[in-house]
């Protein structure tokens, strides 16, 4: 979309409303599905208010009704780990008062992040965050209540093609940022890696692997700034046979927070000489993923 060139708040409102309408319908299907699975209506509403993450909620209801509550929590958290890097990115947009940051954190979703990052940094971006965050929260929770009340009458959102609306909306919001070469490459590689690994890995991990690209950029940058610090440069990445194994089994072992912060984490650890040594195997393993 042309959003970066436009500054009118009402245009943002209209765009958010379009996704908001779709979110009401999907929220309704979540409420209806929860009740249909034999769970109480309050559970659907509590989950929508307190968890507020659609993909994880659907996954959790499925696993709870299959009698697997522990898996419901673990799978849901794995799916939601991406919110940590989102938070790092939006941290300076939300506001500087603690209560704003505490409240704003809860309103952060994929769509809110996309709407926010599609605006130029500054006041416009902050307004977009709070507008999208508030409206989409109301849409999701209003939809959930409607779905609980309507029960089976809420219907399947796929009939209306709403499952196609969300990816299309996300991509439309992303398009302007793809003019930047690094962003374009990272997005393309991330998308391909995620799609190829989706049949192989538990939900949530393939998306996190998209951070491998930016992680490698960070690594390259760090190496340029801190040229050959000892023997930690080329060899471990190039021919360490264990690197690939660790890279694959590491994420599967369930360290979503660490994997999720690869880009930010590497950025943090510049001063210590020991850090690059420990960190190199992971991106190397991730780079082997698509093969």
């Amino acid at each position: 979309m042309r959003t970066p060139e436009r500054t009118s708040g009402s245009e943002v409102l209209r765009d958010v409303a379009a996704i908001g309408a779709a979110i009401v319908a999907v929220g309704a299907s979540f409420g209806a599905m929860t009740v249909a699975a034999g769970l109480p209506g309050w559970a659907a509403v509590a989950m929508s208010v307190l968890v507020y993450a659609g993909g994880a909620q659907f996954m959790a209801i499925g696993l709870i009704s299959a009698g697997n509550p522990v898996a419901a929590v673990l799978a849901g958290l794995l799916i939601n780990a991406r919110h940590l890097p989102f938070g790092l990115t939006l941290g300076d947009t939300i506001g500087h008062r603690l209560r704003h940051r505490l409240l704003g954190s809860h309103l952060m979703t994929d769509e809110t992040t996309a709407f926010t990052l599609a605006r130029p940094a500054g006041t416009a971006r902050r307004q977009a965050f709070w507008l999208a965050g508030t409206l989409l929260f109301l849409a999701w929770n209003g939809g959930t209540v409607l779905g609980v009340l309507a029960g089976g009458a809420a219907g399947d959102p796929a009939v209306f093609g709403l499952d196609a609306a969300f990816p299309a909306g996300l991509m439309a919001l992303l398009l302007p940022s793809l003019r930047d070469r690094d962003t374009r490459h990272a997005a393309l590689v991330g998308a391909v890696v995620a799609v190829l690994t989706t049949p192989l890995l538990p939900a949530g991990l393939p998306v996190l692997l998209a951070l491998a690209g930016p992680g490698l950029i960070a690594l390259r940058r760090l190496r340029r700034q801190h040229p050959p610090s000892g023997d930690a440069t080329e060899t471990p990445v190039a021919n360490d046979p264990t690197a690939g194994g660790q890279g694959v089994s590491g994420p599967a072992g369930g360290v979503p927070a660490v994997g999720g912060s690869v880009a930010g984490g590497q950025a943090v650890g510049i001063p210590t000489a020991a850090v690059p040594v420990g960190r190199e195997p992971a991106p190397a393993g991730q780079r082997e993923e698509p093969c």
Partner: peptide, 14 residues
């Protein structure tokens, strides 16, 4: 690099 990472995540999600 942070927004680049976020864009990669969103592209992967989409």
């Amino acid at each position: 690099l942070l927004p680049v990472g976020a864009a990669a995540l969103l592209a992967a999600l989409a």
